[in-house]
């Protein structure tokens, strides 16, 4: 067990370092932060002086090592653009992103499973076909188009939901939340649905396929033959078994939700991390960009790590293979 755990841990750290290095070397191609930091009046000498001060003239690997050294200490430096510590900026915006991702995941899972089961059971019903066709739009329309359409429909035409922002937030000291005010709850509806659509359609199709497969199996046939109620067969016997792969995939996809929230946050002016990142890219704010990439890589690696460990605990086959290999 310990052996397996350590192996995974070392792998995870390696992946993070590689991801961090690759993204860090890309920063050389995003432009010159100094141009954005000083006015157009600044002389060439002053620009050079600032480059020197920021260490931008050092080779990439020196800059990278310095960055990793600071990151391990929890320091990500000060934003070039906002002149504030990056760790503080991220901490300020993390709650907004996590609340958005949490609600989106909830919407995606609940409605995805319900609709998936329905379409799995009523394979050729009219409603099933309509759901599947609509879900096709969910997969194929880009997020920003859906977001803008929602804004025009619900904010401009119907006037029932706010067009942007997060509403009033309540500061709980360690966390600022939009869940405690009416305007905050109203504000999260459109962005969370927009962000959830892709995952939702994904889950619908996955659950549907699983259900259809399981409903063909022998134990379901026997259950039917025994005269067990249809609902009990569908939900207790079939769905329960069908959910295992769904949980795994959804777990991994929550990480994707964090990453994809960038677009949703930009469209809805949602004050989260993704929005901070996009602004940082425009400004070439390297401290924010690198801290964000490290964070997202960390989230992905952590989720994968937890999933791997969970597999090990749940699935005896991996455990046995591992033990045979180590003997």
């Amino acid at each position: 067990m310990l052996n397996y755990f350590l192996k995974r841990l070392i792998q995870s750290i390696l992946v993070m370092i590689v991801v961090a290095f690759v993204s860090f070397s890309l920063f050389n191609y995003v432009g010159d932060p100094v141009h954005n930091m000083v006015g157009q009046e600044a002389s060439t000498e002053k620009r050079q002086e600032i480059r020197e001060k920021l260490g931008l003239n050092d080779p990439v690997h020196t800059q990278f090592l310095r960055f990793i050294g600071n990151a391990v200490k929890g320091e990500f430096g000060i934003s070039y653009q906002l002149r504030r510590p990056v760790s503080e900026l991220i901490a300020e915006r993390l709650p907004a992103t996590l609340e958005l991702v949490f609600i989106s995941a909830l919407i995606a899972i609940i409605s995805g499973v319900i609709l998936g089961v329905y379409t799995g059971i009523n394979r050729d019903g009219y409603l099933s076909n309509i759901i599947l066709i609509i879900s096709l739009f969910g997969v194929s329309l880009p997020t920003f188009v859906i977001g803008i359409l929602f804004i025009y429909l619900f904010a401009v035409i119907l006037g029932i939901l706010p067009s942007f922002g997060r509403g009033e937030v309540v500061d709980l000291g360690f966390w600022n939340t939009g869940f405690l005010t009416l305007s905050g709850i109203k504000a999260i509806i459109l962005p969370s649905i927009t962000l959830s659509l892709f995952q939702m359609t994904y889950i619908i199709r996955l659950v549907r396929a699983e259900m259809m497969e399981i409903l063909q199996t022998d134990y379901i046939k026997f259950a039917r033959a025994r005269g067990i109620q249809k609902n009990i067969i569908n939900f207790k016997h079939a769905l329960k078994n069908g959910l295992i792969p769904v949980i795994t995939i959804t777990g991994i996809n929550v990480g994707t939700l964090v990453a994809f929230s960038i677009i949703t946050e930009t469209v809805f002016q949602w004050p989260g991390m993704g929005f901070l990142f996009i602004n940082a890219v425009h400004f070439v704010d390297i401290p924010i960009m690198s801290a964000y990439l490290i964070m997202v890589a960390f989230i992905f690696v952590m989720i994968n790590f937890v999933v791997d460990i969970t597999y090990y605990v749940i699935d005896p086959r991996i455990r046995i293979k591992e033990e045979v290999a180590s003997e």
């Binding site: 920003f144 803008i148 804004i151 025009y152 904010a155 401009v156 006037g159 706010p162 067009s163 942007f164 922002g165 930009t266 469209v267 809805f268 002016q269 929005f275 996009i278 602004n279």
Partner: peptide, 18 residues
Amino acid sequence: LLPINNDATRVAALLSGD
């Protein structure tokens, strides 16, 4: 002051009275 980065969203916010 409520900054809105996306052009379409800013126009929608103006039209909806936000």
